[in-house]
Amino acid sequence: MSLPHALLTALIERPGAGSELAGRFDRSIGYFWQATHQQIYRELARLEAAGLIEGTAVDGARGRKRAFRVLPAGRAELARWTAERQEPLPIRDEMMVRLRAEAMVGPTTLPDTLTELARHHRDRLKTYQDIEKRDFTPPPTDQGQQLRHLVLKAGIEYERHRAAFCEQAMALLAAPSD
């Protein structure tokens, strides 16, 4: 995935100024595709130069605040990219290597890291569950909302799995070794 496509998606959902977009990005797409505000502003400039979005000055705003909207060429690019075939993603998870290394050189302080990771995943899980309760109760009936809910449910399952995985690894590390 690329940041330009994430930004086009966010702008189609709701046009707005770069600062608004960056804030919304942090609270939605940013949960599974991170970008700094600097990266977002840089990419908005590239998208505009490519004729995929249009920025207009915001009346009465201080500085050079601009509101952005997606142009037909941007919508076409997003449709093209969405239809593109995606290969399965390889797993690249540092924790898996650390656990294998722990088996070879342990004991180390890896249980402390796992405790912190488990807490992080439980916190994120609660955040996602709160979003689900707030935004998807009752369950949506329109397809667009159902797809957004499906993405959120994938995040819920991921966080639930990762917290349980960390807890299982901690239990194994706490057990007496042979």
Rank of each mutant, 00 (worst) to 15 (best):
G63C: 10
G63M: 05
R64W: 04
K65N: 01
R66V: 03
A67R: 12
F68E: 01
F68R: 01
R69H: 08
V70H: 00
V70P: 01
L71Q: 09
L71E: 05
A73G: 00
R75S: 08
R75D: 08
R75C: 00
E77Q: 07
A79T: 08
A79P: 00
R80H: 06
W81G: 00
T82N: 07
T82M: 02
T82K: 03
A83R: 12
R85C: 04
R85G: 01
R85M: 04
R85F: 12
Q86P: 00
E87P: 01
P88T: 06
L89C: 01
L89N: 07
P90M: 11
R92Y: 10
R92G: 09
R92S: 13
D93T: 01
D93R: 12
E94K: 08
M95I: 13
M96E: 15
M96Y: 09
V97W: 09
V97L: 14
R98V: 03
L99H: 03
L99D: 01
L99Q: 07
L99S: 04
L99I: 11
R100L: 15
A101T: 13
M104Q: 14
G106Y: 02
G106T: 04
L110D: 03
L110Y: 02
D112Q: 11
T113C: 02
T115A: 14
E116M: 13
E116I: 09
L117I: 07
A118C: 06
A118Q: 04
A118H: 05
R119A: 14
H120C: 06
H120E: 12
H121A: 06
D123F: 05
R124P: 02
L125Y: 10
L125P: 04
T127I: 10
Q129G: 05
Q129W: 00
Q129L: 15
D130K: 12
E132V: 07
E132T: 06
D135T: 02
D135S: 10
